[in-house]
């Protein structure tokens, strides 16, 4: 019972940190895809007097990555003008040039305004439509969710870290006497810490495996069967086998720091 209690009281806070880390990794991966989709779905509309190349646009702002010219013929088709229409050619010649601009990333609203103001400096550009209000509402919602989630993970990690420190005090109490006796008889630091290191490593491996199993189950049972498109679309981002390695390394790192803190705090009597 004592053995289980000793292990569980380290495994739980360690798992809380690992869950936080894995949630962060999954969230980052998922939002990265979402961010790319938002970026791909967004374009800025520009109207210019004369034709402009991508280099012309880039000379005004470096964030412009791709330029798609909207063909005038298609615009006329939309206006339901026939080929026979005599006025068509004249009208076509008098039409300005329309461009759809793609940006190099998902920019913040102030960054977007900066791009717009840079382009407005060109005498050739007649009008710019940035669809800022739609962009802004999506961006703010996205930023808010990201911020809330990251704050929650940070808060959870801080509490877990304090729980681990508390557990270290218990470890210190449990192992200090043995380590002091061993030191008197000439044991090296490694030998003195060996029991503690073994125990911590076992707990680290158990915590990493349980956390991985939780995410594997979430991915394959809950997310795959979910009715929500956003979850189903990101099912592969939920858990990757490389995550086991990341969790294991993180877990071992945390416990080794903890062991070190215990060992250096044991002073010879």
């Amino acid at each position: 019972m004592k053995f289980i209690k000793t292990h569980v009281s380290l495994i739980f806070p360690l798992m809380a940190i690992l869950l936080g880390l894995e949630f962060f990794i999954v969230f980052d991966r998922t939002t990265d895809t979402f961010e790319k989709n938002l970026q791909n779905g967004y374009s800025m509309m520009v109207v210019s007097k004369d034709e402009m190349s991508i280099d012309d646009f880039k000379s005004w702002d470096k964030h412009i990555e791709q330029v798609i010219e909207l063909e005038k013929v298609k615009i006329l088709e939309r206006l339901q003008m026939t080929k026979e229409d005599e006025k068509k050619m004249k009208f076509q010649d008098s039409l300005p040039n329309f461009y759809s601009l793609k940006l190099d990333g998902y920019l913040t609203v102030p960054e977007l305004e900066k791009v717009k103001s840079n382009l407005e400096k060109s005498d050739n550009i007649l009008s710019i439509e940035s669809f800022q209000s739609a962009y802004q509402s999506k961006y703010e919602l996205f930023s808010f969710i990201k911020f809330a989630f990251q704050t929650f993970i940070l808060f959870m990690s801080i509490i877990s870290f304090f729980l681990i420190l508390k557990q270290m005090e218990v470890w210190n109490f449990l192992h200090a006497q043995r380590m002091k006796i061993m030191e008197i008889f000439g044991a090296s630091l490694f030998l003195r810490s060996k029991v503690l290191i073994n125990m911590a490593l076992i707990d680290a491996v158990i915590s990493a495996l349980i956390t991985s199993a939780i995410f594997y189950v979430i991915q394959n049972v809950w997310v795959r069967g979910s009715q929500m498109d956003i979850l189903r679309d990101n099912v592969d981002a939920m858990f990757a086998f490389t995550d086991i390695l990341i969790l294991l390394v993180a877990s071992i790192f945390v416990v080794m720091v903890a062991v070190y803190l215990v060992v250096v705090n044991v002073k010879e009597e």
Partner: peptide
């Protein structure tokens, strides 16, 4: 450490490792 490993030290309060058996304590 080397010097201590060649010493025998006995304490008034015994200083045995309570979670170890007698045999393991003796051969520390």
């Amino acid at each position: 450490q080397e010097l201590r490993s060649h010493l025998g030290i006995v304490f008034q309060d015994y200083r045995l490792i309570n979670e170890w058996t007698v045999e393991k304590n003796v051969v520390l």
